[in-house]
């Protein structure tokens, strides 16, 4: 579904990613793990086209999206939930969802499905996004990305700063999406959360990727976690 091959990118003269390669299949959760500054967020931004790939390729299905302008990438079914949520703060909940629906011309049915998944958003449709609680903002960021009806979903630290009950709700939503066949690439700092839902884990170290490891193998071999992220 999502194929990242020898991807390199960076900011200005600084190169952050060096020949990163991995795949994410439909109905699978792959987690990117690494220390701070390893290049996890940079990797997601490069997949979305928000940072230009200097070499390598990103393919979604049959389409090489790394050759497209950034605003064309989501039209190929790649949804993005960025770190810190990055909602359109002064727009209402309904307007934030509308922005997501416009990407691929989805309508009321899609919106109703999203509101069914996060009923609390339905109660706050006319409320400004920046007046929502942290958990509700995460629901909205997730709902906005789901309005695309993505086949690939990129999540950057979705549980950051959330209370345990909210983390569980987000976890359930992510696993439900996986069960529906969505390919999910997850960046997460909380190793326990990763091991509970990920199928495979890709370690990033100084911008270089290591071959994907089965999540079950990590549970039985904690030395790997110690080696790559120091826990």
């Amino acid at each position: 579904m999502l194929n990242v091959e020898n991807l390199s990118s960076g900011y200005g003269d600084i190169r952050v990613l060096h020949d990163v390669s991995f795949t994410v299949e439909g109905g699978e959760i792959v987690c990117l793990l690494g220390r701070n500054g390893a290049g996890k967020t940079t990797c997601l931004k490069t997949i979305m086209g928000l940072l230009r790939a200097r070499s390598g390729s990103v393919t979604c299905g049959d389409v090489e999206v790394s050759r497209l302008p950034a605003n064309e990438v989501p039209r190929h079914g790649i949804g993005y939930i960025p770190q810190g949520r990055r909602l359109f703060a002064e727009l209402t909940v309904a307007e934030n969802l509308e922005i997501g629906l416009m990407v691929r011309g989805k309508g009321r049915e899609t919106r109703d499905r999203v509101l069914e998944m996060f009923p609390r958003l339905g109660e706050r449709l006319n409320q400004r996004a920046d007046t929502l609680s942290g958990g509700e903002q995460q629901m909205l960021a997730t709902g906005r990305a789901l309005c695309i009806e993505p086949s690939v979903l990129l999540l950057d630290e979705p549980t950051e700063g959330l209370q345990p009950s909210m983390i569980e709700q987000i976890r359930q939503a992510v696993t439900a999406l996986r069960d529906r066949g969505v390919a999910i690439l997850l960046v997460e700092q909380r190793v326990d959360a990763v091991l509970s839902i990920a199928n495979r884990v890709v370690f990033l170290e100084n911008g270089r990727s290591h071959p994907a490891i089965d999540a079950g193998e990590l549970k039985t071999n904690p030395n790997l976690l110690h080696r790559f992220i120091g826990v």
């Binding site: 086209g49 928000l50 064309e72 989501p74 960025p82 990055r86 359109f88 922005i99 990407v103």
Partner: peptide, 9 residues
Amino acid sequence: EMARAFAVP
């Protein structure tokens, strides 16, 4: 930037 990530040209 987020507008771009949601297909806004």
